[in-house]
Nucleic acid binder design. Structure first.
Length: 482
RNA sequence: GUCCCCAUCGUCUAGAGGCCCAGGACAUCAGCCUUUCACGCUGAAGACGCGGGUUCGAUUCCCGCUGGGGACGCCA
Protein backbone atom coordinates (compact mmCIF):
# COMPACT_ATOMS: atom_id res chain seq x y z
CA UNK A 1 0.00 0.00 0.00
CA UNK A 2 2.97 2.29 0.37
CA UNK A 3 4.12 1.89 -3.20
CA UNK A 4 2.72 5.26 -4.12
CA UNK A 5 4.11 7.76 -1.65
CA UNK A 6 2.24 10.75 -2.97
CA UNK A 7 -1.11 9.12 -2.44
CA UNK A 8 -2.77 8.99 0.92
CA UNK A 9 -0.95 6.79 3.35
CA UNK A 10 -2.40 4.30 5.68
CA UNK A 11 -2.78 5.77 9.11
CA UNK A 12 0.29 5.21 11.25
CA UNK A 13 -1.92 3.56 13.82
CA UNK A 14 -3.91 0.40 13.33
CA UNK A 15 -6.71 1.06 10.80
CA UNK A 16 -9.17 -0.47 13.21
CA UNK A 17 -7.61 0.88 16.35
CA UNK A 18 -8.21 -0.83 19.61
CA UNK A 19 -7.92 2.63 21.07
CA UNK A 20 -10.54 4.98 19.66
CA UNK A 21 -9.11 8.24 18.33
CA UNK A 22 -9.03 11.45 20.30
CA UNK A 23 -9.24 14.66 18.29
CA UNK A 24 -9.38 18.25 19.35
CA UNK A 25 -10.33 21.64 18.08
CA UNK A 26 -7.95 24.29 19.37
CA UNK A 27 -8.96 27.80 18.39
CA UNK A 28 -7.32 30.90 19.72
CA UNK A 29 -9.84 33.32 21.18
CA UNK A 30 -8.67 36.38 19.34
CA UNK A 31 -11.88 36.76 17.36
CA UNK A 32 -15.03 35.01 16.26
CA UNK A 33 -15.23 31.42 15.12
CA UNK A 34 -14.67 31.91 11.44
CA UNK A 35 -15.81 29.67 8.67
CA UNK A 36 -12.48 27.92 8.22
CA UNK A 37 -12.26 27.14 11.90
CA UNK A 38 -15.80 25.87 11.80
CA UNK A 39 -14.89 23.41 9.08
CA UNK A 40 -11.82 22.26 10.98
CA UNK A 41 -14.02 21.70 14.02
CA UNK A 42 -16.54 19.83 11.88
CA UNK A 43 -13.91 17.48 10.46
CA UNK A 44 -12.50 16.77 13.91
CA UNK A 45 -15.96 16.17 15.27
CA UNK A 46 -16.98 13.88 12.41
CA UNK A 47 -13.76 11.91 12.61
CA UNK A 48 -14.20 11.32 16.32
CA UNK A 49 -17.88 10.44 15.98
CA UNK A 50 -17.29 8.15 13.04
CA UNK A 51 -14.62 6.19 14.84
CA UNK A 52 -16.33 6.21 18.19
CA UNK A 53 -13.63 8.39 19.68
CA UNK A 54 -13.58 11.63 21.61
CA UNK A 55 -13.64 15.22 20.41
CA UNK A 56 -12.04 17.69 22.80
CA UNK A 57 -12.02 21.46 22.88
CA UNK A 58 -9.03 23.49 23.91
CA UNK A 59 -8.94 27.26 23.97
CA UNK A 60 -5.47 28.49 23.05
CA UNK A 61 -5.43 31.63 25.09
CA UNK A 62 -1.73 31.94 25.75
CA UNK A 63 -1.64 35.25 23.92
CA UNK A 64 -2.89 37.26 26.86
CA UNK A 65 -2.94 40.53 25.03
CA UNK A 66 -5.23 39.38 22.25
CA UNK A 67 -7.42 36.77 23.92
CA UNK A 68 -10.82 37.97 25.04
CA UNK A 69 -13.78 36.61 26.97
CA UNK A 70 -16.06 37.76 24.19
CA UNK A 71 -14.15 35.70 21.66
CA UNK A 72 -14.33 32.63 23.88
CA UNK A 73 -18.07 33.09 24.17
CA UNK A 74 -18.40 33.53 20.42
CA UNK A 75 -16.48 30.33 19.77
CA UNK A 76 -18.48 28.32 22.26
CA UNK A 77 -21.75 29.73 20.93
CA UNK A 78 -20.70 29.09 17.36
CA UNK A 79 -19.87 25.45 18.04
CA UNK A 80 -23.09 24.97 19.96
CA UNK A 81 -25.12 26.50 17.17
CA UNK A 82 -23.44 24.26 14.63
CA UNK A 83 -24.25 21.30 16.81
CA UNK A 84 -20.65 20.27 17.33
CA UNK A 85 -20.67 19.29 20.95
CA UNK A 86 -17.33 18.47 22.48
CA UNK A 87 -16.55 15.80 25.05
CA UNK A 88 -15.40 16.61 28.55
CA UNK A 89 -14.38 19.94 29.97
CA UNK A 90 -12.99 22.77 27.91
CA UNK A 91 -9.24 23.01 28.41
CA UNK A 92 -7.86 26.50 28.78
CA UNK A 93 -4.30 26.47 27.66
CA UNK A 94 -3.08 29.42 29.68
CA UNK A 95 -4.06 27.65 32.87
CA UNK A 96 -1.48 25.03 32.01
CA UNK A 97 1.37 27.48 31.46
CA UNK A 98 3.28 26.23 34.49
CA UNK A 99 3.24 22.68 33.16
CA UNK A 100 4.52 23.91 29.80
CA UNK A 101 7.33 25.88 31.42
CA UNK A 102 8.27 22.86 33.47
CA UNK A 103 8.72 20.80 30.31
CA UNK A 104 10.96 23.51 28.87
CA UNK A 105 13.06 23.63 32.01
CA UNK A 106 13.42 19.88 31.95
CA UNK A 107 14.63 20.11 28.37
CA UNK A 108 17.22 22.72 29.35
CA UNK A 109 18.39 20.54 32.22
CA UNK A 110 18.77 17.64 29.82
CA UNK A 111 20.71 19.74 27.34
CA UNK A 112 17.95 19.51 24.74
CA UNK A 113 17.15 23.19 24.95
CA UNK A 114 19.14 26.27 25.85
CA UNK A 115 18.98 29.90 26.84
CA UNK A 116 19.30 32.38 24.04
CA UNK A 117 20.19 36.01 24.64
CA UNK A 118 19.81 37.29 21.10
CA UNK A 119 17.90 40.55 20.98
CA UNK A 120 15.00 41.28 18.68
CA UNK A 121 17.27 43.63 16.76
CA UNK A 122 19.78 40.87 16.21
CA UNK A 123 17.03 38.56 14.98
CA UNK A 124 15.78 41.18 12.61
CA UNK A 125 19.26 41.62 11.22
CA UNK A 126 19.64 37.86 10.83
CA UNK A 127 16.48 37.70 8.76
CA UNK A 128 17.53 40.64 6.65
CA UNK A 129 20.91 39.22 5.73
CA UNK A 130 19.45 35.75 5.18
CA UNK A 131 16.98 37.22 2.74
CA UNK A 132 19.70 39.18 0.99
CA UNK A 133 21.86 36.09 0.64
CA UNK A 134 19.00 33.88 -0.49
CA UNK A 135 19.16 31.65 2.55
CA UNK A 136 16.16 30.49 4.59
CA UNK A 137 14.97 33.01 7.14
CA UNK A 138 15.99 31.38 10.35
CA UNK A 139 17.73 31.88 13.67
CA UNK A 140 21.39 31.04 13.28
CA UNK A 141 21.84 29.20 16.56
CA UNK A 142 24.42 31.61 17.92
CA UNK A 143 23.66 30.74 21.56
CA UNK A 144 23.18 27.05 20.96
CA UNK A 145 26.61 25.97 22.12
CA UNK A 146 27.80 29.14 23.73
CA UNK A 147 28.89 29.16 27.33
CA UNK A 148 26.06 30.61 29.45
CA UNK A 149 28.81 32.45 31.33
CA UNK A 150 29.02 34.78 28.35
CA UNK A 151 25.44 35.86 28.86
CA UNK A 152 25.06 39.60 28.79
CA UNK A 153 24.00 41.32 31.99
CA UNK A 154 20.36 42.17 32.43
CA UNK A 155 19.10 40.50 29.26
CA UNK A 156 16.30 38.05 30.05
CA UNK A 157 16.82 35.04 27.81
CA UNK A 158 14.34 32.96 25.88
CA UNK A 159 14.53 29.19 25.83
CA UNK A 160 15.07 27.60 22.44
CA UNK A 161 14.92 23.96 21.57
CA UNK A 162 17.99 22.24 20.16
CA UNK A 163 16.63 21.10 16.85
CA UNK A 164 18.58 18.61 14.78
CA UNK A 165 20.72 20.50 12.29
CA UNK A 166 21.35 17.74 9.84
CA UNK A 167 19.19 15.15 8.17
CA UNK A 168 15.53 15.61 7.53
CA UNK A 169 12.21 15.38 9.27
CA UNK A 170 9.30 13.49 7.76
CA UNK A 171 5.71 13.47 8.76
CA UNK A 172 3.24 10.86 7.57
CA UNK A 173 0.22 13.05 7.05
CA UNK A 174 -3.16 11.40 6.73
CA UNK A 175 -4.19 13.89 4.07
CA UNK A 176 -1.00 15.19 2.53
CA UNK A 177 0.85 11.92 2.42
CA UNK A 178 4.50 11.71 3.39
CA UNK A 179 6.09 15.14 3.54
CA UNK A 180 9.77 15.67 4.17
CA UNK A 181 11.77 18.77 4.88
CA UNK A 182 15.50 19.25 5.36
CA UNK A 183 16.32 20.09 8.96
CA UNK A 184 18.59 22.84 7.68
CA UNK A 185 15.42 24.68 6.73
CA UNK A 186 14.20 24.69 10.29
CA UNK A 187 15.66 26.54 13.24
CA UNK A 188 15.75 26.38 17.00
CA UNK A 189 12.31 27.67 17.81
CA UNK A 190 11.51 29.58 20.95
CA UNK A 191 9.86 27.50 23.67
CA UNK A 192 9.72 30.04 26.47
CA UNK A 193 9.53 33.77 25.97
CA UNK A 194 11.79 36.17 27.81
CA UNK A 195 9.03 36.71 30.35
CA UNK A 196 8.95 32.97 31.01
CA UNK A 197 5.62 32.27 29.34
CA UNK A 198 5.38 29.35 26.93
CA UNK A 199 4.95 29.86 23.22
CA UNK A 200 2.23 28.28 21.14
CA UNK A 201 4.66 25.73 19.72
CA UNK A 202 5.53 24.40 23.15
CA UNK A 203 1.99 24.55 24.48
CA UNK A 204 0.37 22.63 21.65
CA UNK A 205 2.87 19.85 21.87
CA UNK A 206 2.63 19.49 25.62
CA UNK A 207 -1.14 19.77 25.65
CA UNK A 208 -1.71 17.40 22.77
CA UNK A 209 0.52 14.93 24.52
CA UNK A 210 -1.06 15.38 27.93
CA UNK A 211 -4.57 15.21 26.49
CA UNK A 212 -3.71 11.96 24.68
CA UNK A 213 -4.63 13.43 21.33
CA UNK A 214 -4.15 10.73 18.72
CA UNK A 215 -5.04 12.68 15.61
CA UNK A 216 -4.37 16.32 14.95
CA UNK A 217 -6.70 17.57 12.21
CA UNK A 218 -6.07 21.19 11.38
CA UNK A 219 -5.58 23.66 8.56
CA UNK A 220 -2.92 23.31 5.95
CA UNK A 221 -1.28 26.47 7.22
CA UNK A 222 0.05 24.41 10.12
CA UNK A 223 1.84 21.92 7.92
CA UNK A 224 5.24 23.49 8.38
CA UNK A 225 4.63 23.77 12.11
CA UNK A 226 4.21 20.02 12.18
CA UNK A 227 7.89 19.51 11.40
CA UNK A 228 9.07 21.60 14.29
CA UNK A 229 6.50 20.06 16.55
CA UNK A 230 7.61 16.59 15.52
CA UNK A 231 11.15 17.53 16.48
CA UNK A 232 9.93 18.77 19.82
CA UNK A 233 7.99 15.59 20.49
CA UNK A 234 11.17 13.62 19.89
CA UNK A 235 13.16 15.94 22.18
CA UNK A 236 10.56 15.36 24.87
CA UNK A 237 10.78 11.64 24.30
CA UNK A 238 7.17 11.42 23.15
CA UNK A 239 5.53 9.84 20.14
CA UNK A 240 3.97 12.43 17.82
CA UNK A 241 0.26 12.08 17.04
CA UNK A 242 -1.03 11.38 13.55
CA UNK A 243 -1.40 14.58 11.57
CA UNK A 244 -4.04 15.46 9.02
CA UNK A 245 -3.57 18.85 7.40
CA UNK A 246 -6.68 19.79 5.53
CA UNK A 247 -6.60 22.36 2.74
CA UNK A 248 -7.70 25.86 3.54
CA UNK A 249 -10.84 27.57 2.38
CA UNK A 250 -10.18 30.38 -0.03
CA UNK A 251 -12.24 33.41 -0.82
CA UNK A 252 -13.69 34.03 -4.28
CA UNK A 253 -10.34 35.59 -5.21
CA UNK A 254 -8.45 32.41 -4.43
CA UNK A 255 -6.59 33.74 -1.42
CA UNK A 256 -6.71 32.27 2.06
CA UNK A 257 -9.83 33.25 3.89
CA UNK A 258 -8.81 34.88 7.12
CA UNK A 259 -10.36 37.11 9.69
CA UNK A 260 -9.03 40.14 7.96
CA UNK A 261 -9.65 38.78 4.49
CA UNK A 262 -13.33 38.20 3.99
CA UNK A 263 -13.90 35.44 6.51
CA UNK A 264 -17.08 35.81 8.49
CA UNK A 265 -17.89 34.40 11.87
CA UNK A 266 -20.43 31.61 12.02
CA UNK A 267 -22.78 33.98 13.82
CA UNK A 268 -22.78 36.09 10.66
CA UNK A 269 -24.10 33.11 8.74
CA UNK A 270 -26.72 32.60 11.40
CA UNK A 271 -27.76 36.22 11.03
CA UNK A 272 -27.88 35.93 7.26
CA UNK A 273 -30.44 33.21 7.74
CA UNK A 274 -28.57 29.99 7.21
CA UNK A 275 -29.54 26.80 8.97
CA UNK A 276 -26.79 25.00 10.86
CA UNK A 277 -27.50 21.73 9.08
CA UNK A 278 -27.09 23.48 5.73
CA UNK A 279 -23.80 25.05 6.74
CA UNK A 280 -22.58 21.70 8.00
CA UNK A 281 -23.47 20.00 4.73
CA UNK A 282 -21.85 22.77 2.72
CA UNK A 283 -18.67 22.85 4.76
CA UNK A 284 -18.39 19.09 4.60
CA UNK A 285 -18.44 19.15 0.82
CA UNK A 286 -15.66 21.70 0.72
CA UNK A 287 -12.68 19.44 0.34
CA UNK A 288 -14.42 16.17 1.06
CA UNK A 289 -16.55 14.00 -1.15
CA UNK A 290 -18.39 10.73 -1.03
CA UNK A 291 -18.88 9.85 -4.67
CA UNK A 292 -21.63 11.94 -6.24
CA UNK A 293 -23.50 12.57 -3.01
CA UNK A 294 -24.39 16.20 -2.44
CA UNK A 295 -27.16 16.20 0.11
CA UNK A 296 -25.56 14.64 3.13
CA UNK A 297 -27.47 14.85 6.38
CA UNK A 298 -25.43 14.67 9.54
CA UNK A 299 -26.16 11.04 10.35
CA UNK A 300 -24.87 10.07 6.91
CA UNK A 301 -21.89 12.38 7.35
CA UNK A 302 -20.92 10.56 10.53
CA UNK A 303 -21.39 7.22 8.84
CA UNK A 304 -19.35 8.12 5.77
CA UNK A 305 -16.72 10.55 6.95
CA UNK A 306 -13.11 9.58 7.01
CA UNK A 307 -9.84 11.27 6.26
CA UNK A 308 -9.21 9.35 3.06
CA UNK A 309 -12.01 11.28 1.44
CA UNK A 310 -10.38 14.62 2.10
CA UNK A 311 -8.86 16.26 -0.95
CA UNK A 312 -5.61 18.16 -1.00
CA UNK A 313 -6.43 21.22 -3.00
CA UNK A 314 -7.96 24.34 -1.50
CA UNK A 315 -11.59 25.18 -2.19
CA UNK A 316 -13.26 28.50 -2.78
CA UNK A 317 -16.22 29.54 -0.75
CA UNK A 318 -19.32 29.81 -2.92
CA UNK A 319 -22.49 31.41 -1.61
CA UNK A 320 -24.57 30.15 -4.53
CA UNK A 321 -24.11 26.58 -3.50
CA UNK A 322 -24.65 27.35 0.16
CA UNK A 323 -27.88 29.09 -0.78
CA UNK A 324 -29.07 26.09 -2.72
CA UNK A 325 -28.31 23.74 0.15
CA UNK A 326 -29.95 26.10 2.61
CA UNK A 327 -33.07 26.17 0.45
CA UNK A 328 -33.12 22.41 0.50
CA UNK A 329 -32.86 22.21 4.26
CA UNK A 330 -35.48 24.92 4.70
CA UNK A 331 -37.89 22.87 2.63
CA UNK A 332 -37.17 19.88 4.82
CA UNK A 333 -37.41 21.73 8.11
CA UNK A 334 -40.34 21.57 10.49
CA UNK A 335 -42.90 24.38 9.97
CA UNK A 336 -43.16 25.37 13.62
CA UNK A 337 -39.39 25.46 14.00
CA UNK A 338 -39.10 27.68 10.96
CA UNK A 339 -41.85 29.98 12.18
CA UNK A 340 -40.05 30.28 15.49
CA UNK A 341 -36.75 31.11 13.82
CA UNK A 342 -38.37 33.68 11.58
CA UNK A 343 -40.38 35.26 14.39
CA UNK A 344 -37.26 36.79 15.83
CA UNK A 345 -36.83 39.07 12.86
CA UNK A 346 -40.11 40.88 13.40
CA UNK A 347 -40.36 44.04 15.44
CA UNK A 348 -42.45 43.99 17.50
CA UNK A 349 -42.59 40.23 17.97
CA UNK A 350 -45.53 38.60 16.20
CA UNK A 351 -48.65 37.90 18.21
CA UNK A 352 -49.59 34.29 18.90
CA UNK A 353 -52.16 34.59 16.14
CA UNK A 354 -49.60 35.92 13.71
CA UNK A 355 -47.20 33.15 14.68
CA UNK A 356 -50.01 30.72 13.99
CA UNK A 357 -50.51 32.20 10.52
CA UNK A 358 -46.79 32.02 9.86
CA UNK A 359 -46.71 28.39 10.83
CA UNK A 360 -49.78 27.58 8.77
CA UNK A 361 -48.37 29.44 5.81
CA UNK A 362 -44.92 27.93 6.06
CA UNK A 363 -45.68 25.09 3.67
CA UNK A 364 -46.37 27.63 0.96
CA UNK A 365 -43.38 29.79 1.83
CA UNK A 366 -40.64 27.20 2.25
CA UNK A 367 -40.01 26.47 -1.39
CA UNK A 368 -39.70 30.16 -2.10
CA UNK A 369 -36.87 31.04 0.23
CA UNK A 370 -33.15 30.30 0.26
CA UNK A 371 -32.59 31.88 3.65
CA UNK A 372 -34.55 32.55 6.78
CA UNK A 373 -34.29 36.20 5.91
CA UNK A 374 -36.12 35.65 2.67
CA UNK A 375 -38.59 33.50 4.53
CA UNK A 376 -39.30 36.35 6.91
CA UNK A 377 -39.82 38.80 4.07
CA UNK A 378 -42.13 36.37 2.37
CA UNK A 379 -44.18 35.89 5.51
CA UNK A 380 -44.26 39.51 6.55
CA UNK A 381 -47.82 39.94 5.26
CA UNK A 382 -49.02 37.26 7.67
CA UNK A 383 -47.70 39.35 10.53
CA UNK A 384 -48.40 42.86 9.25
CA UNK A 385 -51.14 45.06 10.69
CA UNK A 386 -53.67 46.73 8.39
CA UNK A 387 -53.61 48.83 6.43
CA UNK A 388 -50.82 47.25 4.42
CA UNK A 389 -48.13 49.30 2.78
CA UNK A 390 -47.95 48.23 -0.85
CA UNK A 391 -44.75 47.97 -2.76
CA UNK A 392 -44.41 49.65 -6.13
CA UNK A 393 -45.23 46.62 -8.22
CA UNK A 394 -48.30 45.88 -6.15
CA UNK A 395 -49.38 49.46 -6.53
CA UNK A 396 -49.14 49.11 -10.29
CA UNK A 397 -51.20 45.94 -10.30
CA UNK A 398 -54.17 47.74 -8.77
CA UNK A 399 -55.41 49.50 -11.89
CA UNK A 400 -58.92 50.82 -12.18
CA UNK A 401 -59.97 47.61 -13.95
CA UNK A 402 -58.31 45.51 -11.32
CA UNK A 403 -60.09 47.33 -8.53
CA UNK A 404 -63.34 46.90 -10.40
CA UNK A 405 -62.75 43.17 -10.53
CA UNK A 406 -61.91 43.05 -6.82
CA UNK A 407 -65.04 45.03 -6.02
CA UNK A 408 -67.09 42.51 -7.93
CA UNK A 409 -65.32 39.58 -6.31
CA UNK A 410 -65.72 40.87 -2.77
CA UNK A 411 -69.39 39.98 -2.21
CA UNK A 412 -68.86 36.52 -3.66
CA UNK A 413 -66.11 35.93 -1.15
CA UNK A 414 -68.14 37.41 1.65
CA UNK A 415 -70.90 34.90 1.09
CA UNK A 416 -68.68 31.90 0.42
CA UNK A 417 -69.82 28.83 2.33
CA UNK A 418 -66.43 27.30 3.07
CA UNK A 419 -63.41 29.49 3.73
CA UNK A 420 -60.79 27.15 2.36
CA UNK A 421 -58.10 27.64 -0.24
CA UNK A 422 -59.93 25.29 -2.59
CA UNK A 423 -63.27 27.03 -2.19
CA UNK A 424 -61.75 30.48 -2.61
CA UNK A 425 -59.91 29.41 -5.71
CA UNK A 426 -63.00 27.79 -7.20
CA UNK A 427 -64.95 30.97 -6.57
CA UNK A 428 -62.25 33.14 -8.11
CA UNK A 429 -62.09 30.92 -11.15
CA UNK A 430 -65.83 30.96 -11.57
CA UNK A 431 -65.85 34.70 -11.22
CA UNK A 432 -63.05 35.20 -13.71
CA UNK A 433 -64.74 33.00 -16.24
CA UNK A 434 -68.06 34.76 -15.83
CA UNK A 435 -66.38 38.13 -16.18
CA UNK A 436 -64.39 37.00 -19.18
CA UNK A 437 -61.13 37.54 -17.38
CA UNK A 438 -58.04 35.41 -17.14
CA UNK A 439 -57.44 34.01 -13.69
CA UNK A 440 -54.32 36.08 -13.42
CA UNK A 441 -56.31 39.25 -13.88
CA UNK A 442 -58.12 38.41 -10.67
CA UNK A 443 -55.41 36.63 -8.73
CA UNK A 444 -52.73 39.25 -9.16
CA UNK A 445 -54.78 42.18 -7.89
CA UNK A 446 -55.96 39.99 -5.05
CA UNK A 447 -52.35 39.20 -4.24
CA UNK A 448 -51.47 42.85 -4.24
CA UNK A 449 -54.34 43.72 -1.93
CA UNK A 450 -53.78 40.86 0.50
CA UNK A 451 -49.99 40.73 0.63
CA UNK A 452 -48.90 44.16 -0.48
CA UNK A 453 -46.61 42.56 -3.03
CA UNK A 454 -46.57 41.14 -6.50
CA UNK A 455 -44.81 38.02 -5.24
CA UNK A 456 -46.18 35.75 -2.56
CA UNK A 457 -47.12 32.21 -1.66
CA UNK A 458 -50.21 30.85 -3.46
CA UNK A 459 -52.74 33.59 -2.95
CA UNK A 460 -55.82 31.46 -2.27
CA UNK A 461 -53.93 29.58 0.38
CA UNK A 462 -52.80 32.89 1.81
CA UNK A 463 -56.37 34.17 1.88
CA UNK A 464 -57.51 31.03 3.63
CA UNK A 465 -54.85 31.43 6.30
CA UNK A 466 -55.53 35.13 6.68
CA UNK A 467 -59.16 34.35 7.42
CA UNK A 468 -62.30 35.76 5.91
CA UNK A 469 -62.50 38.88 8.07
CA UNK A 470 -58.93 39.91 7.50
CA UNK A 471 -59.16 39.15 3.79
CA UNK A 472 -62.27 41.27 3.33
CA UNK A 473 -60.82 44.04 5.45
CA UNK A 474 -57.64 44.14 3.38
CA UNK A 475 -59.78 44.21 0.27
CA UNK A 476 -61.79 47.09 1.67
CA UNK A 477 -58.60 48.98 2.44
CA UNK A 478 -57.99 49.09 -1.29
CA UNK A 479 -61.56 49.42 -2.47
CA UNK A 480 -62.50 52.28 -0.21
CA UNK A 481 -59.35 54.10 0.74
CA UNK A 482 -59.92 56.44 3.68
C1' G B 1 14.26 35.12 -1.13
C1' U B 2 13.98 29.83 1.08
C1' C B 3 10.99 25.66 1.91
C1' C B 4 6.34 23.07 1.55
C1' C B 5 1.61 22.05 -0.74
C1' C B 6 -1.80 22.14 -4.80
C1' A B 7 -3.53 21.87 -10.25
C1' U B 8 -10.63 18.02 -13.93
C1' C B 9 -16.37 22.56 -16.50
C1' G B 10 -17.06 29.79 -13.82
C1' U B 11 -17.43 27.16 -8.60
C1' C B 12 -17.54 22.44 -5.42
C1' U B 13 -16.21 17.77 -6.98
C1' A B 14 -16.33 12.03 -9.08
C1' G B 15 -12.40 9.70 -11.32
C1' A B 16 -6.94 5.54 -7.99
C1' G B 17 -4.13 3.05 -16.55
C1' G B 18 -8.51 1.00 -20.69
C1' C B 19 -15.63 1.26 -17.96
C1' C B 20 -14.22 8.60 -19.74
C1' C B 21 -14.76 11.74 -27.26
C1' A B 22 -14.70 12.50 -18.64
C1' G B 23 -19.90 11.70 -14.37
C1' G B 24 -22.68 14.63 -10.45
C1' A B 25 -23.95 19.33 -7.98
C1' C B 26 -24.28 24.86 -7.86
C1' A B 27 -24.47 28.88 -11.12
C1' U B 28 -25.91 30.08 -16.51
C1' C B 29 -29.26 29.42 -20.82
C1' A B 30 -33.80 27.13 -23.13
C1' G B 31 -38.38 24.58 -22.34
C1' C B 32 -42.30 22.25 -19.31
C1' C B 33 -45.40 23.01 -14.93
C1' U B 34 -48.15 27.46 -13.19
C1' U B 35 -52.69 32.66 -10.15
C1' U B 36 -47.09 35.61 -9.11
C1' C B 37 -42.45 34.03 -7.60
C1' A B 38 -40.24 29.84 -6.35
C1' C B 39 -39.91 24.50 -6.04
C1' G B 40 -39.84 20.41 -9.35
C1' C B 41 -38.92 18.16 -14.13
C1' U B 42 -36.50 18.02 -19.14
C1' G B 43 -32.64 19.66 -22.17
C1' A B 44 -28.24 22.79 -23.67
C1' A B 45 -23.57 24.98 -23.18
C1' G B 46 -19.21 24.22 -20.20
C1' A B 47 -13.08 21.14 -17.83
C1' C B 48 -8.61 16.98 -17.64
C1' G B 49 -2.84 24.11 -17.52
C1' C B 50 1.71 23.17 -20.91
C1' G B 51 5.89 20.05 -22.44
C1' G B 52 8.42 15.66 -22.01
C1' G B 53 8.64 10.64 -20.59
C1' U B 54 6.77 5.30 -18.81
C1' U B 55 3.05 2.09 -21.20
C1' C B 56 -0.09 -1.50 -26.34
C1' G B 57 -2.94 2.54 -23.86
C1' A B 58 -2.77 8.10 -19.81
C1' U B 59 -7.31 12.70 -16.55
C1' U B 60 -5.08 8.81 -13.82
C1' C B 61 2.25 7.02 -12.86
C1' C B 62 7.27 9.92 -13.27
C1' C B 63 10.06 14.57 -14.50
C1' G B 64 10.21 19.66 -15.89
C1' C B 65 7.67 24.22 -16.73
C1' U B 66 3.81 27.48 -15.75
C1' G B 67 0.13 29.05 -12.56
C1' G B 68 -2.08 29.27 -7.62
C1' G B 69 -1.69 28.76 -2.36
C1' G B 70 0.75 28.33 2.38
C1' A B 71 4.80 28.80 5.97
C1' C B 72 9.16 31.20 7.31
C1' G B 73 7.37 35.77 14.98
C1' C B 74 9.58 36.03 22.09
C1' C B 75 0.99 35.36 17.17
C1' A B 76 -1.75 31.25 17.39
Amino acid sequence: MLDSPTRHLDPPQDPTPAMPPVTRFAPSPTGFLHIGGARTALFNWLYARHHGGRFLLRIEDTDRARSTEAAIAAILDGLAWLGLEWDGEVVYQFARAERHAEVARRLVAEGRAYYCYATPAELEEMRATARAEGRPLRYDGRWRDRDPAEAPEGVPPVVRMKAPQEGETTIADLVQGEVTVANAQLDDMVLLRADGTPTYMLSVVVDDHDMDITTVIRGDDHLTNAFRQTQLYRLCGWEPPAFAHIPLIHGPDGAKLSKRHGALGVEAYREMGYLPEALRNYLLRLGWAHGDDEIIPTDKAIEWFDLDGVGRSPARFDFDKLNHLNGHYIREADDARLAGLVAGSFEPAPSPAALGRLTAGMAGMKARAKTLKELAELGAFYVAERPLVLNEKAEKLLTAEALQALAALRPRLASLADWTAEAIEAEARAFAEAAGLKLGAVAQPLRAALTGSNVSPPIFEAAAILGRDETLARLDDRLAPP
